[in-house]
Nucleic acid binder design. Structure first.
Lengths: 95, 95
DNA sequence: CCTTATGCTTAAAGCTCTTAATCATTAAAA
DNA sequence: TTTTAATGATTAAGAGCTTTAAGCATAAGG
């Protein structure tokens, strides 16, 4: 049951990882081993968290890669669910 | 904690959805509203379950789209974790 | 023999993820 | 005020994924 519009995972990175440590996007990107553009795009909601990026985040911030990718999944799913009624699918099994 | 090699979600579609209903790939693809090739590739582990496909599966088989996409996430993550040590990431926060 | 189902290949379009280089703006420091 | 650092954005590019259509060869069944 997904009812609310989940925030983009990039917002979580900014608020829960960068700001508490007073990290700049530039420095965090260096630590993560990605370009500044890549991290900037994610933080500003323009790109998604890839599986590899989830592992990078888990190393840098001592979290679980699963939590990062699950957040992305919830975000993706919410948007996919918005188009549920537009999909022309025939029900094959009853509820 | 992910320790085992999770099966590709396509295997689950085949074993838990198609076979119990004695559905052919061709017929299931028609019901899902995708090409035969698309479903065949997923079932044979060549393609992944997209968010939209998760919603299609949830409609056709009266399941939750979340469960389908979570299976894909676990699969993706397991493979990304295999390369954890190859990623050049600097730890920024302690465990 | 003919039909059906299947997996595979080719070719193509569209999208995502990533990089490097560049530019304009903002904010802080000297 | 001038200079430097950080940021968000754009452009250009390559690699890969998802999807489609069309076609081919194989296997199974009537």
């Amino acid at each position: 049951m997904i009812m609310h519009n989940p925030p983009h995972p990039g917002l979580i990175i900014k608020e829960l990882c960068l700001e508490p440590l007073e990290l700049t996007v530039t420095d965090a990107a260096k630590a993560l081993g990605v370009s500044r553009k890549t991290l900037s795009s994610i933080i500003n909601g323009k790109s998604n968290i890839s599986p590899e990026m989830a592992v990078r985040l888990s190393i840098a911030f001592s979290t679980s890669s699963e939590s990062w990718l699950n957040q992305q999944t919830q975000y993706d799913l919410w948007h996919a669910e918005q188009k549920r009624k537009e999909l022309n699918v025939i029900k094959l099994a009853a509820a």
